[in-house]
C-alpha cells in the first residue's frame, strides 16, 4: 500500500498542476456571493467553443443579409454570458444573444 502511495501522490500533484483552477465570482438569486473554482482548461475550451459557435451562425446570417437602408453594418459584438451555480460540476457556459450592431452609412 505504501509503495502505491508515493506514485499516487506524484500523479495527483502533476494532475493538479496541469488543471489549474480559476475562481468564478458571482451572486445567487438572493444576492449572496457565490464562488466556484473551475478548471482553467475547461474555462478556455468552453468559452471559446460557445463563442465560436455563436459567431459562426450569426456572422453567416448577417453576411447574407441585404441591408437596403443605405447603411452597412461593419461592427458586431457578441456577448457571452457565463452562468455558474453552486455545486460540484456546476460550471456552465451559455452564449446569450447580447448583440450590438454598428452601422456605417454607405457612401454613394
Amino acid at each position: 500500500m505504501k509503495k502505491l502511495f508515493l506514485p499516487f501522490l506524484i500523479i495527483l500533484l502533476l494532475t493538479s498542476c496541469r488543471h489549474r483552477l480559476v475562481p468564478m465570482i458571482g451572486m445567487d438569486s438572493n444576492g449572496d456571493e457565490v464562488i466556484e473554482h473551475v478548471s482553467a482548461v475547461n474555462f478556455k475550451s468552453s468559452s471559446a467553443d460557445v463563442m465560436n459557435l455563436v459567431a459562426k451562425d450569426t456572422l453567416t446570417t448577417l453576411s447574407n443579409h441585404k441591408f437596403n437602408s443605405g447603411w452597412d453594418m461593419n461592427h458586431f459584438q457578441v456577448g457571452l454570458l457565463i452562468n455558474t451555480t453552486v455545486g460540484p460540476l456546476a460550471w456552465k457556459v451559455s452564449a446569450t444573444p447580447g448583440f450590438r450592431l454598428v452601422f456605417k452609412k454607405v457612401k454613394k
Partner: peptide
Amino acid sequence: LSKSGLLGFKALNGKSVFQVYYQKKKATPV
C-alpha cells in the same frame, strides 16, 4: 473581487461578462 480579496472572473447571471467584437475586414474601424 470577493469580500476577502479574491480576484476572479465575473460570473453574474443576467449580464454579459465576456464580449467579443467582430468587424468587417474591409470596413472602417469604429
